[in-house]
Design a protein around this nucleic acid. Structure first.
Lengths: 350, 350
DNA sequence: TTTATGAAGATTATCGTTAATGTATATCGT
DNA sequence: ACGATATACATTAACGATAATCTTCATAAA
């Protein structure tokens, strides 16, 4: 029954020839579309299995206009933040029949635009974009090309596009309050570069917690080593200026630092351990994202948990709504945050 | 000149209509294939640009039989090892015109096989596979399906398939020797689970360094918490048994541990910091992969650098040879390793 | 009996490219 | 001036699937 296939994979036509049905019937039978009798359907499916049939997604995509591919444009997979969330995205996408094309923008707007065009040329059904600092053009182009996009983890302003973010302001507020509760009264907010709007939101949370606790203005420090005009933030040397600023902050009596994200917080922690000028400094450190708790890396870093799994799920489902033609106005989904204490801010003392 | 396009993206036919040439001529002109005059070529390309043409990769793939897609099957993107190397793979692939489909096997052979079939259904030109502990079936199936594969970072035996790996034995030897040079004489080799052949290779390196330095047999410890029959290593609780074993090793006077990879080494380091039973233990730790040095994460962990970029380049280029039809016998490319000292093994003392 | 309804398939027409041929005109050697 | 080679295109035929539109033939309703 099963013939020797001279070359190439089995096609619908091969099954049609084998079973005597038409190609169309075979196609419908394999996809359980109606108008095919139970018996026929079963027989065709069995034959397909025996012959080792495997759908050609390319052909299917061309005809149906759906690739079942979502492109993720993230900054870089070596950053655990992106790694972890991509991991989650991948399994959720797979559960819904989608595959993930992964591209890295290196936080560069120009590269990001290029990648977006590639994603469009490949006819991705949609894009999950972790935007850079200047993604307006990318967004505009994708709108032209009619490729659905959901902005992930960062925002370009309220309701500019579909958007899934953590509750940034509240997270920053919680983090700062945590420092304060641990007895810290001279606080700093450190961010490697000014991630549009996310930075502003977290700054607001930082300041409002300071306000609430009556921290005087001169005890509220901020620092952003990489200038906001930079088109290539990742290749900027933020270490030297950051170290200098840390030394300065130490002199100024800073005793608590809220760092923009966990990855940066780790840099800071390692500087604290390694730089002789910082040795013995009693300073509380708290990050954001809770990347180690989400998966691996047990360390003592306090952080703000971002519910990555929820963000990933919401992102994919929002994107799917668009893919299926929703024309509702852009929606911003704010995911809940939660403080996680691991001791890097010091013990309660009093 | 540029018309209002009523719907959908511009196609070759639109350009053909606009310029008066045939579809085929337009196609050839845009790809700079021969048999088209300079003038025509230029004119067509200009028109295409003006009309905002963008090739439909799906249609192109269907006809040409090439998708220009490489599927990466890695364990999980939340593991920085995979994250970093995927990052590198992505940029090298992009430079060669390939996009990356990223899938995560979670180190599970069954899931891996499924993913491989998906990759085949999507007609990936080839697969970069970071194999699980039981990838023989996957490999066999891919051979049936005639999808080129290169095994990455791990080996299933010498020349079973194309393979790009680090020089595991030498790396382990260097790591162990490093411990010994730092005055460590009671050594252990710790590996979360028994990654086929890679484990054996590193064990060999460990033992040969012990041998060379005259470390007595009773001072050569090994431990693998997760049993090798496990089909789902990542969800196994390795922490409890590992902690217990660390406590035991401490009692037994172990003073140096070579850990299978950096990620695991970090777990160990954090246990050393956090578990009261381990407090104050003077033990040298060295990992493998040098993941932090490759990109971020400055910590004090000694490690063995694996030249990720070279591995990635070699992997992609080897795969491309296969994609282009090479029928040479399977090749194993062994990439050089290099010791990196950051102090976690202690100072030289004598 | 006649017509409407429906089930179960078959036909046919694309999807947007690229590969394999065809063809007309110009150029060339002899 | 003849056929031979090139040049620069046009025509035609896939690639493998899916969608839209027919056919049948049987059964039910009128």
């Amino acid at each position: 029954m099963a013939e020797i296939k001279p070359k190439g994979p089995v096609t619908l036509q091969d099954i049609a020839r084998e079973t005597g049905y038409s190609v169309n019937t075979v196609s419908r039978a394999l996809r359980n579309k109606g108008d095919i009798s139970q018996a026929t359907c079963a027989r065709i499916q069995r034959t397909a299995r025996e012959m080792g049939y495997m759908v050609n997604q390319i052909a299917s995509s061309l005809r149906s206009g759906r690739t079942k591919i979502i492109t993720v444009i993230a900054g870089s997979m070596s950053n655990p933040f992106y790694g972890i969330i991509t991991d989650t995205l991948q399994s959720i996408a797979a559960a819904r029949g989608y595959s993930l094309l992964v591209m890295c923008s290196r936080e560069r707007p120009d590269l990001e635009l290029e990648l977006a065009e590639m994603a469009a040329a490949r006819r991705s059904d949609g894009i999950l974009l972790f935007p850079t600092n200047a993604s307006a053009r990318t967004l505009e182009r994708l709108r032209e090309l009619k490729v659905p996009v959901v902005l992930m983890a960062r925002t370009l302003g309220d309701d500019v596009a579909d958007n899934v973010i953590a509750d940034e302001t509240r997270g920053a507020y919680l983090a700062t309050r945590h420092l304060i509760e641990r007895g810290r009264r001279n606080l700093a907010f450190l961010s490697q570069y000014r991630i549009v709007f996310s930075y502003e939101k977290r700054l607001r949370g930082f300041l409002s917690a300071c306000e609430e606790a009556g921290i005087p203005e001169q005890n509220r420090h901020t620092f952003v080593p990489v200038p906001s005009t930079t088109q290539d933030p990742l290749s900027w040397d933020w270490r030297t200026p950051t170290l200098e600023r840390l030394i300065q902050w130490r002199r100024e009596g800073v005793d608590g630092i809220f760092v923009f994200c966990d990855v940066e917080a780790w840099y800071v922690q390692s500087m604290l351990q390694q730089a002789p000028e910082l040795a013995g400094w009693d300073v509380g450190i708290i990050g954001f994202d809770n990347i180690e708790g989400a998966q691996h890396f047990p360390t003592g870093l306090c952080s703000v948990d971002c519910a990555f799994e929820e963000m990933a799920t919401r992102g994919i489902d929002l994107l799917r709504e668009r893919i299926h033609g929703s024309t509702l106005p852009p929606k911003t989904i704010v995911c809940p945050v939660r403080l996680v204490c691991r001791g890097s801010c010091g013990r309660l003392e009093d």
